[in-house]
Design a protein around this nucleic acid. Structure first.
Length: 541
RNA sequence: ACGCCCGUAGCUCAGCCGGAUAGAGCAACAGCCUUCUAAGCUGUGGGUCAGGCGUUCGAAUCGCCUCGGGCGUGCCA
């Protein structure tokens, strides 16, 4: 059991003796930030004094008087009524043995028997991924990893919009590029894709088909160009994501959703919630959470994107997930209540869908903002960034900050500072632990950590003991940046310890064995935490 | 106009289910390589937590208002 949990139990027992009955989870135990306040502290007395008509300090003292536990070294009342506990050295050191025994299973949460579908990126296959997608990919994958670590069952999914208006324009743009190769003037509209990557695809078509498609009617060859464009773009996206160490369990295709009679059946099902206005069919989402109704069938008879999207989300729910998580760009926030409303129409709870909004990445180059647009093709692409800066640094960078924070990303700075990226600091800490273990491989490791007990060793032990609850919190908050913050702190503790302590001391093999065990534990946790963020942990740097 | 996100050190950001002197990295400054990797360590400086009012024993954190920035409010996706 981790320290905070144990302390909650101790406090609860003592509080009961002092006349205060509280649930274990209602007891807030926090790591102190200053050793003079002991190892852990709780504000329980301050929170509950009024209820009992006592002064916080008096209540604290009567709780303290009732504490009797072999793990506890010292208890004190401080400030306005904090109860500060100091644990015995041995109880802090016990985490080392646990980590060494459990290895990468350390920090793994209990099986929650809770199935979560995480959908992320889901970029339209109409061009290269841009930096917004990079952030979505890094976050979606890390969130999935953290969920799994915390004991949830996760399916990672990508929804491919291979129908509708956008891919129609992809086909038209590709056709225009194809014709351009034969000397015809390039005609691209505002809604078409101007990205130069289409030229390469057009060249391939030219190689395969020559000029055979040149003089056909547009409507006859357009489906071919659409299909070819989608297949090629999607293959590129899959490769880019794979190179970024992002793996998916399921790719779902809008074209599959539209097959058969699923959509007409859905329309029939939703009929009580619809009305016709100006020839278009509207869904009464405003009866639920939305502030206005949304069209699902256009007056020309085509579906809006929303209808197959509803069908898709119903499909996901029908597959038995307890929770759907959509990682979306912040410009989709209007979509949340729309889709929740649709889910409610079938009787699902609105909480069965959680949307993780990823704020816009503003990109700067030479101090000037680079507007991202797949259509103009001017944006810095995901591929360029990763090639320039490297997977580890990019993944870490995009996950280091909360998804909700607006991110100013300076491309030139990222390139020039890639050596200063905090990820190297963490990787270096790991490499150092490996190096020490290599140098001291002839010394017997002491998993009990008997010699440990200095202030910096205690700080490390406490931080290691925090790992499981950090995982739990990061999962609940879908907050990979907390893992990054944890890693930074652990790396800093290791570096500082290394800098101030001669770890391998051949005059003192017992103490060295304890220290090496501590370093091994740190290495295991660092590697595991970095892995959650999709970052590698090299043994040498 | 309305809705959502954001405003914390020179810069990029943590902290936000209220708690003890507000943190980290980068940048700046001063030190540390004959001993375990200097991609490192030690130390210093740097803040009206956008502003105001309120709730509270206690507010960066909760509520209301104002200001500033971003996004959204398509028969686009």
């Amino acid at each position: 059991m981790q320290n905070e949990e144990r302390i909650r139990g101790i406090i609860q027992k003592a509080a009961a003796k002092a006349g205060l009955e509280v649930g274990v989870q209602a007891i807030e135990v926090e790591n102190t930030r200053d050793p003079k306040f002991g190892d852990y502290s709780t504000n329980l007395a301050m929170k509950n004094a009024k209820k009992l008509g006592k002064k916080p300090i008096d209540l604290a003292n009567s709780i303290i008087g009732a504490i009797d536990d072999p793990l506890v070294e010292k208890v004190e009342c401080a400030g306005p009524g904090f109860i500060n506990l100091t644990l015995k050295k041995e109880s802090l050191a016990s985490v080392v043995k646990k980590i060494l025994e459990q290895g990468s299973a350390y920090g793994k949460g209990n099986d929650k028997h809770f199935k979560i579908n995480v959908e992320f990126v889901s970029a339209n296959p109409t061009g290269d991924l841009h930096l917004g997608h990079t952030r979505g990919a890094a976050l979606g994958d890390a969130i999935s990893n953290i969920y799994e670590k915390a004991g949830y069952e996760v399916t990672r999914e990508y929804y491919v919009n291979d129908c509708g208006n956008q891919v129609h324009h992809l086909g038209l743009s590709l056709l225009a590029r194809y014709k351009e190769l034969f000397g015809e003037p390039l005609e691209l509209g505002d809604d078409d894709y101007h990205g130069v990557d289409l030229i390469e695809i057009a060249k391939k078509i030219k190689e395969e088909k020559g000029d055979s498609l040149l003089h056909e009617k547009t409507e006859d060859v357009l489906p071919y160009f659409i299909r070819y464009g989608i297949d090629t773009e999607l293959a590129k996206i899959k490769k880019d994501l794979g190179d970024f160490r992002v793996r998916y369990d399921v790719f779902s295709y809008e074209s599959d959703i539209r097959k058969g009679d699923a959509i007409p059946k859905l329309l029939e099902e939703l009929k009580p919630h619809t009305y016709v206005l100006d020839g278009a069919v509207y869904l009464k989402t405003s009866d639920y959470l939305d502030d206005k109704d949304r069209p699902i069938v256009k007056s020309d008879g085509n579906f809006t994107y929303f209808l197959p999207d509803i069908c898709y989300h119903y499909d996901k729910m029908a597959r038995g997930f307890d929770l759907l998580v959509d990682v979306l760009g912040a410009d989709h926030h209007g979509y949340i209540n729309r889709m929740k409303s649709a889910l409610m129409m079938r009787g699902y709870k609105p909480e069965s869908l959680e949307v993780e909004l990823v704020q816009i990445v503003k990109t700067f180059q030479n101090g000037v903002e680079v507007k991202m647009s797949k259509r103009t093709g001017k944006a810095i692409t995901h591929r360029e960034l990763v090639a320039e800066v490297g997977v580890d640094a990019v993944r870490y960078f995009f996950v280091e900050r909360a998804a909700s924070s607006h991110l100013d990303f300076d491309y030139d700075l990222a390139k020039s500072q890639s050596k200063d990226n905090p990820v190297y600091y963490a990787q270096y800490a790991y490499a150092r632990t490996c190096s020490l273990l290599g140098l001291g491989r002839d010394i017997a490791i002491d998993p009990e950590g008997k010699g440990l007990g200095s202030e910096d060793e205690k700080a490390i032990l406490k931080h290691l003991a925090d790992y499981p609850s950090m995982i739990e919190g990061a999962a609940k908050g879908r907050a990979p940046h907390r893992v990054a913050a944890y890693i930074q702190k652990l790396a800093a503790l290791v570096h500082a310890y290394y800098g101030l302590t001669r770890i391998i001391d051949r005059e003192n093999p017992n103490l060295t064995g304890s220290r090496l065990a501590l370093m091994k534990a740190c290495g295991l946790v660092l590697k595991d935490a970095l892995g959650l963020l999709g970052v590698e942990a090299p043994e040498k740097m």
